[in-house]
């Protein structure tokens, strides 16, 4: 587990791509809208189209290198397939005597209707996986928080407090290595739930220091007058185009497969 893997700073190429320059809030809004839209249908069509569109957009508009995208997708796709299989095996339609029996595996009866439903659910989860991966691989966490504050009107104290805490992720990996080494030295099992206590102790100590440093610099202090921004963000035509495309796409897909 390397530090760079755990602290995913995205590369310049993705950050300056079309999708990288789109407001993170627009991408987030589309992702949530698509998610809600997919919850409304069991048809496999809409999620399959969204998977194709998302992956092409990620590669072409987001400039995500194919190996990087694949490395992110493969383990997640396997987990998604697991959920689809679970749905297939435990489908209520397998017990329905009117359903067409396809095969039997030991005591399990698998019906055509259950296969169709599981395929739809598998496609839905595949779409969720693809959208999440492309969002994470084209969104700089700092820009996400800037957008939440400037465009989403989230309280800067909470948003930047969370960002400051997020920067500690690579240190958490270091802490974990230290704690495991310490346990090994004492002849204990390296993995134990107690490690979590050690991790939290170190994280909270660091949070205390961070809070003192932030207070000392007048972070979020109402006495300092109006706030200025270091990295001003503005809505652009690009944001409007991407948002419109995303909304139209899901509406058309849902209407077409009704």
């Amino acid at each position: 587990m390397t530090m760079s893997y755990l602290a995913p700073a995205i590369a310049h190429e993705q950050r300056d791509s079309l999708l990288g320059r789109t407001s993170p809030l627009v991408k987030l809004a589309i992702a949530v809208l698509w998610l809600l839209g997919l919850g409304l249908t069991v048809h496999p069509g809409p999620p399959l189209v969204l998977i194709v569109v998302t992956l092409i957009a990620g590669i072409e508009l987001g400039r995500i290198p194919l190996p990087r995208l694949a490395a992110r997708l493969v383990p997640l796709a396997l987990a998604a397939a697991g959920i689809a299989v679970t749905n297939l095996v435990f489908s209520g339609q397998n017990a329905d005597p009117a359903a067409t029996e396809l095969t039997r595996i030991g005591p399990l009866r698998i019906t055509e209707e259950a296969v169709a439903a599981a395929f739809g659910i598998g496609a839905r989860i595949g779409a969720i996986v693809a959208v999440g991966a492309v969002f994470a691989l084209t969104t700089d966490p700092t820009r996400l928080v800037d957008a939440l504050v400037q465009q989403g009107r989230i309280s800067p104290r909470f948003a930047y407090g969370a960002l400051a805490a997020y920067q500690a992720v690579p240190r958490l990996a270091d802490d974990l290595a230290t704690l495991r080494a310490a346990r090994r030295l004492r002849g204990l099992r390296e993995w134990h739930p107690r490690i979590l206590v050690g991790l939290l102790v170190r994280a909270i100590r660091r949070a205390d220091q961070l809070a003192i440093a932030m207070d000392a610099r007048g972070f979020g202090s109402p006495d300092l007058g109006a706030r200025t921004t270091f990295r001003p963000l503005h809505w652009s035509i690009l944001d409007a185009v991407v948002l419109l495309t995303g909304v139209v796409l899901i509406v058309v897909l849902l209407l077409a497969t009704r």
Partner: peptide
């Protein structure tokens, strides 16, 4: 207080890493 914000955020972040590992183990 700033301390409440950062400590809450740090607990969230630490469990975010736990969630991520738990998600991979889930399969």
């Amino acid at each position: 207080r700033t301390r409440d914000i950062v400590v809450t955020a740090v607990i969230g972040v630490a469990f975010g890493v736990v969630f991520w590992a738990w998600g991979l183990a889930w399969g």
